[in-house]
Design a binder for these strands. Structure first.
Lengths: 110, 110
DNA sequence: CTGATCTACAACCATTTGGTTGTAGGATAT
DNA sequence: ATATCCTACAACCAAATGGTTGTAGATCAG
């Protein structure tokens, strides 16, 4: 099993990428289908450049990939990025449960 | 079952709160034990005010709660906030798996 | 070749963020 | 009563964020 150590900077970028409504919506879209950057831009009430920037943020966070197809750039969801975030939150969950279990033990002892 | 609709603003706050190394570290600490704000501040190479602000960000995101005890303010992890984020990411996961399944079906038809 | 389309990126702007120091109020200890 | 401790918050600053318009390079269609 690969340990896949996540740097703080990488996690910062991952969570930061999710911390915007438009980007979360893009994530949902590209998880289901394929979109060019222009195709995505058509969905939102903001400029093409703004959407292109959002896609760039997602790309830097490894949450999407882009593939050139003719003059278009096809944006696809990257499952790895999502998995990394989920895994981290699962760790927090484990820590939490351990604590709850510990407290339960303490209460049982009384 | 409570649906517990999450507003975009609430999700923005939750992910934003996680998008900082210091705040993630605070989350790990308060998941395990109890800390006053001063107790937390002692752990980091920054001013008390900076840490107090980080705690305030986590509190606004419903990721921690504070309880006054004498002149101290005890910071505790709030499991609900963590669960909300995990649940959202699980939704993305479900969407993703549906897509993978759909592609597998298409490939199977050929 | 020419014009239209798709993308990337620079420059700019307002707001937010993450840090600082300083001030002030409530709780505790002596 | 007084000094100390813990906290909150204001004011400030530099950098990042989320948006804009404009420019320019590829690629495609006629």
């Amino acid at each position: 099993m690969v340990v896949d150590q996540l740097s703080d900077a990488e996690l910062d970028r991952l969570f930061q990428a999710f911390a915007d409504t438009t980007r979360r919506d893009i994530m949902r879209r590209v998880a289901v289908g394929e979109y060019s950057v222009t195709g995505l831009a058509a969905l939102y009430a903001m400029s093409f450049a703004a959407v292109q920037k959002h896609v760039a943020v997602l790309e830097r966070a490894s949450l999407v990939t882009k593939e050139k197809r003719g003059r278009e750039q096809i944006v696809r969801g990257n499952h790895d990025g999502l998995e990394k975030v989920r895994r981290l939150l699962d760790e927090y969950e484990v820590i939490w449960r351990q604590r709850v279990a510990r407290i339960a033990d303490i209460l049982a002892e009384e």
